[in-house]
Write a protein that binds this DNA or RNA. Sequence first.
DNA 1: CTATGTTCATTGGTATCGCCAACGTTAGTC
DNA 2: GACTAACGTTGGCGATACCAATGAACATAG
Lengths: 169, 169
Amino acid sequence: MLGAMEEGDELRFDRGAETPERIKAQLSRLVGLTAAQTARASSDALRAVGAHKDHFVVLAALAEFGPASQSALAGRARVYKSDLVAVLNELADGGWIRRTPDPADKRRNVITITDSGVRRLAELDQVLAGVNAHITAPLTREERDQLFALLNRVNTHLAGPRFRPESGA
Amino acid sequence: MLGAMEEGDELRFDRGAETPERIKAQLSRLVGLTAAQTARASSDALRAVGAHKDHFVVLAALAEFGPASQSALAGRARVYKSDLVAVLNELADGGWIRRTPDPADKRRNVITITDSGVRRLAELDQVLAGVNAHITAPLTREERDQLFALLNRVNTHLAGPRFRPESGA
DNA sequence: CTATGTTCATTGGTATCGCCAACGTTAGTC
DNA sequence: GACTAACGTTGGCGATACCAATGAACATAG
């Protein structure tokens, strides 16, 4: 008999009873699982419209903070400047941004969002809103806010001093 | 110096005022940030004792469910059988598991946790408990449970049917 | 005006992780 | 004895986060 479980589904899903207790108790695992799934959900949704995360993040930074050099943009959008190059190429190919040399400083490129870039951002924003709605579907409005608040607190806390096994509890 | 913000810190940290609102509103980003940080925290802590995630997860599965073949173990520990090979090699090198051919089925290896493996698991468990404590430090007991519960609900919900932009609101 | 050091965009590379495909071996099945 | 399936293992792919080095342009000091 061998009670063979049907393999073939993916590893990021919890398997309930088959999962060791010690593992289920790890917050990092739970948060990691959830992150993987939300990441895939938005990644899939964005791919469906020919975009990916960095597209959104860069367009958003441009829309909210105005034109910027690539390095300023890299800082704001939290994308490595190395990786930003490819993203900007793609965005330029789509006509969503313009990359113009800065006359004041010839090293710099000034990145500007175009009108169609603004429309594109709205489109991606809507796509991601759908994803967010899907993700938080089982939660009430308050719970959603709670989750946000809790994660934010954990997150900003972790952004602080690095963990040292000795220090603290 | 042009009021340049000091670059050099890492991208996974939120930058507050410098971060576009649209981005901050994305749950997937928040969860992703948190996941990255918790993952690194535990990854660092485990590396400090010469282990990594799969070590813990595999030892835990062995301890809770007893000896198993590699494929059963792969299922329980949620590690791809391809990747499990290396993990078991390392664990065997440390003397924490034994890999013995199954006389009943010569294809199979029976993986058994050793006594020192049990001790190793306890060690890793303690390391991770410290990490968990650090992660959830800013939360009260109730909030910690809340976060767990909320993430679990989101997570199991996402494990269900795949997101389709058309279906549902 | 040359020399030095810094900033900019860009190229290339590393490490890790989740994941899949294919192989040789061994078991069950007709 | 031929087929099919499961086992452990090898090797690789693709994405992501990250770093290092380069060449052009700028700034400043002597």
